[in-house]
Design a protein around this nucleic acid. Structure first.
Lengths: 223, 223
DNA sequence: ATTCGATATGAACAGTGTTAACTTAGCAGT
DNA sequence: ACTGCTAAGTTAACACTGTTCATATCGAAT
C-alpha cells in the first residue's frame, strides 16, 4: 500500500538537496515557474525546464501529458490566489456596488502582476483551429482546459451582480450579461497593457481607477 | 554534378519593376492570406506559404526579413480597411457621441470578422521579453512594429473625444485617456470572444451593443 | 532469484524559422 | 564573343521545438 514520502532514487545524484515534501511533479512546476519570471515565456521550453530540475526532457512526460498541461497547472495555481482574493472581498460587508469596484480593481492588479500567466489563461487560443462556431452549451466545462479557473473567477462577478439585483437596483441586462460586460472591460485593460507594454499609455493608476469606474457605471449607471 | 536543370519552369519574366498587378512579393502575401483563413494561423508556416507560391522556403527571405514581417504586413493591410471605415464614420455629420458609438461598433465588428489578424496585431507580444518598463515616448513610433496601424486606429478615437470636448461636454480625463478607456473596453470584448470562442457567452449582439454603450457612458456619463 | 512496476534515459522523428553556399538566367560594357 | 555583375532561386544544413519509443536501472514483493 501507501509508500511513505517519495522514493528518492535519482540515478544521477542531484547536487541540490531534495527537500522534504517535494514531489518530482512539484519540482517541475517550480522550475517552470522560476524560468517563467526569470527569462519569460519564450524561454520556458520543455528541455530547459528539465535541465533545471536536473532530469532529461522525456522525464517530464511521466508527470504531465504535454507541455500545455504544465503551463495550465501553473496558471491555475496562480489564479487560485486571485480566486481567494475575490472571496475575501466577497466577505467584506460592503454595498454591492462597492464590492464590484473592489473586485474589479483586484482583478486588474492581479492580471498586471502576473502577465505571463494571464496571457496563457486568457489570451492564448488553445481552441482547436477549425472550430469557429460558438457552441452555446452551458455544460459542465472540462476543468482541464485553460480558462477553467478563469470561469470560476468570472462566476464570482456574476454573484455580486445578483446581489446588486437583490438590493433592488434594476439591471439593464441579466446578471450574467452585466458581469460579462464589466469583466470584459477590465479584461481589455489588462490584456492591452500586457500585450503592448511599450505603448505610451496614460498614467496606469488613472487607467485602473477609470476603468473600474467605467466598468460599473457603464453597465449600471445608477451604481 | 549534372546540371540537370529540372529547373522551375515558373521562371515567369515577371519584372518587378514592371509591377503589373502581382509581384512575387504580393504573391507571397496572397498565399499567406489564403492559408490564413483556409487553415488558420497555426498552419501558416514559412514552408507552406512557399509551397503555395510554388517556390522554395528560403526564397521568401528575399522579400521579407522574417516570418513576422510577412504577418505584420498582412495585418497592416487589413487594418487599413478598418482605418478607412473609421474615416468614413468620421465624415458623417453626427453628434460626437453618436460618432463615438458608431466607431466603437465598427471596431468591434471588424475585430470579430478578422480574428487572426486582430490577434497578431493586438494580442501577440512581439515586444522583446526582458523589456517590461513602460517607456513613455510620444515619439515617432517605428511603423514596422505590429500595432503601428493599431495606434493610428486609436488616434481616430482620440480625435472624436477632442470633438466632444469642443462641443462643450466636460470630460473627466484628458481626451487621450478617455479614448484609451473606451478603446480598451471594446478591445476587451473582441479579445475575449476571439480567444475563448467556445465559452458560453451571452448573446453576441447584446454584448456588442451593451459594450458600445458602456464604453461611452462609462467614461462620459452625460453622453 | 525472479518478476514487477515505477522512474528515468538516449536516440530519434517530424516539425519549426533561418542562414550559407551554390547555381542560374539575363543584361550591361569593353 | 567574352567577360563581369546582379537579381532570383536553389539545395543542404543548423539549431531549435514538442514528443515518442525502446531500453535500462533499481527497490520491493513474490
Amino acid at each position: 500500500m501507501g509508500f511513505s514520502s517519495k522514493a528518492a532514487a535519482t540515478k544521477t545524484p542531484s547536487r541540490k538537496a531534495r527537500g522534504e515534501g517535494h514531489t518530482r511533479r512539484d519540482e517541475i512546476l517550480a522550475a517552470a515557474k522560476a524560468l517563467f519570471l526569470e527569462e519569460g515565456v519564450r524561454a520556458t521550453t520543455i528541455r530547459r525546464i528539465a535541465e533545471r530540475v536536473g532530469v532529461s526532457a522525456p522525464a517530464l512526460y511521466l508527470y504531465f501529458k504535454d507541455k500545455d498541461s504544465i503551463l495550465i497547472e501553473l496558471c491555475d495555481r496562480i489564479f487560485a490566489r486571485l480566486l481567494a482574493r475575490l472571496e475575501e472581498i466577497e466577505r467584506e460587508p460592503l454595498p454591492a456596488g462597492q464590492r464590484l469596484r473592489r473586485m474589479g480593481e483586484a482583478y486588474i492588479r492581479f492580471g498586471l502582476e502576473h502577465p505571463d500567466e494571464y496571457r496563457i489563461t486568457f489570451l492564448e487560443a488553445t481552441a482547436p483551429e477549425p472550430v469557429r462556431f460558438t457552441g452555446h452549451r452551458t455544460d459542465t466545462s472540462d476543468l482541464s482546459r485553460p480558462g477553467a479557473k478563469g470561469a470560476l473567477v468570472f462566476s464570482k462577478i456574476v454573484q455580486v451582480y445578483e446581489a446588486v439585483a437583490k438590493e433592488g437596483t434594476r439591471l439593464p441586462y441579466p446578471p450574467v450579461t452585466c458581469a460579462e460586460l464589466s469583466f470584459l472591460a477590465c479584461h481589455g485593460l489588462v490584456a492591452a497593457l500586457i500585450a503592448e507594454p511599450d505603448f505610451p499609455w496614460s498614467d496606469r493608476e488613472t487607467l485602473i481607477r477609470g476603468m473600474v469606474e467605467a466598468s460599473v457605471r457603464g453597465v449600471v449607471p445608477t451604481l
